[in-house]
Amino acid sequence: MRKVVAGWRAAGKTVGLVPTMGALHAGHLSLVEATRKAGADHVVVSIFVNPTQFGPNEDLSKYPRQEALDLERLGEVGADLAYLPTVGEIYPDGFATMVVPSGTIVADLEATFRPGHFAGVATVVAKLLIQVAPDIAAFGEKDYQQLLVMRRMARDLDIPCRILPVPTVRDDHGLALSSRNAYLTPEQLAVARRLNKVLGEIARGLMHVEEGNARLLQAGFDAVDYLGLRDAETLDAPVEGRARRVLAVARLGSVRLLDNMAVD
């Protein structure tokens, strides 16, 4: 992979990276397209189901894997290189160094419900950024807290890469696309499509957060891990005059549905 990238750089070309865990859908493919539009001459897509970001009771063993179909889809959108490292290549024997984010960005939200998750994400993404050395790396806004963590990590560690935010891709009903949506039954899918509608009403000032929480439970969600308004840059409590974001995770059976929207 490094030899191919070195050849591109020798020819004066710029490089983009799209880190993924596979099971690619239209949201992932939009990252490839956005990276090209942002100026990357060549795009590398990594596929690696990262064990260090999964908790002990999470779905690592069941996470969807479809390598052949993923490669076919990447070919259709013109990705230049698929990078599929093994666990042993990313975490060789004796591996003992982790990148552990701190500060307000990881004070709560996903960090509360998935302890250690962002250390796993930051570590693997730092390694991928070092291995590929891209000019641009694209991350979807759907995982908004993760996007902010990646931006902060690259800045704090002086990694010379632009972190590119890409808008969330949604289905015809507004549900944010996710590899884990494949776990939903048809009945659960109908309930799941209420999440973005509630977030939209809160974002437009038509509903308070407390009412939104009750609406989600009434709609059939089993639980709401969190639903709240935050500062869009720091994830602190919102401040008048600064951009805000409404973020939520709601549960349907074993599936955690994560979504967020910018506040008007």
Rank of each mutant, 00 (worst) to 15 (best):
M1A: 14
K3L: 15
K3N: 14
V5N: 03
G7I: 05
R9M: 05
G12T: 14
K13I: 05
L17E: 06
P19G: 11
H25E: 00
A26T: 12
H28A: 07
L29K: 13
E33I: 08
A38C: 07
H42Q: 11
H42W: 06
H42K: 14
V43W: 07
S46A: 07
T52M: 15
P56N: 03
D59R: 10
R65S: 07
R65C: 04
E67W: 01
D70C: 04
L71Q: 13
E76S: 06
V77D: 00
A82R: 02
Y83T: 04
P85R: 09
P92W: 10
S102L: 07
E110H: 04
A111Y: 06
G116F: 08
G120F: 04
V121P: 02
T123Y: 11
V125H: 04
K127A: 09
L129T: 09
I130E: 11
V132L: 07
V132A: 10
D135V: 09
K142I: 11
D143T: 02
Q146T: 13
L147I: 08
P160S: 10
C161L: 14
P167R: 06
L177E: 00
S179K: 04
R180M: 01
N181K: 12
T185K: 12
E187G: 00
E187F: 01
V198Y: 05
L199D: 10
E201K: 15
R204C: 11
G205Y: 03
E211C: 13
E211G: 15
N213D: 08
L216G: 00
L217R: 11
D222I: 14
V224S: 07
L227N: 00
A232C: 05
P238M: 04
R245T: 01
V246M: 05
G253D: 12
S254I: 13
M261K: 13
A262Y: 01
D264I: 06
